[in-house]
Amino acid sequence: MRVLLVDDEVELVSALGERLVIRGIEAEWVGTGEEALQKVAREAFDLAVLDMKMPGIAGLALKERLQAQDPHLKFIFLTGYGSEEVFEDIRRDYAGNVFLIKPVDIDELMGAMRAVMTAAKED
C-alpha cells in the first residue's frame, strides 16, 4: 500500500511516516496541499492522509483536487479539534469520509487504512 501523508506540521508527518514504514507501509509525506498535488501528479498512491486545516489548500477542497488527478485515490482526514461539539460538526460536514482526531493512535490509523482499502476493493 502506498500512502501519502499531508500535514503542515512536518515533524508530525515525518514521525508518523517513519512509523508506517516500520510497519511495512510505503509512506511518503509532504507539508502542503500544493506539494501533495505535485506529488500525486507524478506518482501513484493508494491512499492520502490529509490534515483538515492547513495554510493554502486543505481538507475537502484538497481531496477534490487530488481526486480529479487520481480518481482511484482514497482518503483519511486528520483533525486537531478536540471538543465533542466540534467533532459533531466535522462528522456532519465530512459525512462519508473517514477522519481521526490527533494525537492519532498508530493502530487505529493502520486499522482505518486497511478498512478504507478493503472497502475500495469491494466497490
Binding site: E9, L12, A15, R19, G80, K102, P103, V104
Partner: peptide, 14 residues
C-alpha cells in the same frame, strides 16, 4: 497545543 502533543506522541511512538 494539540499539534505539539500530537508530534510528541508520534516521536514517543517512534
Amino acid at each position: 497545543m494539540k499539534n505539539v502533543l500530537a508530534i510528541i506522541n508520534e516521536m514517543v511512538g517512534l
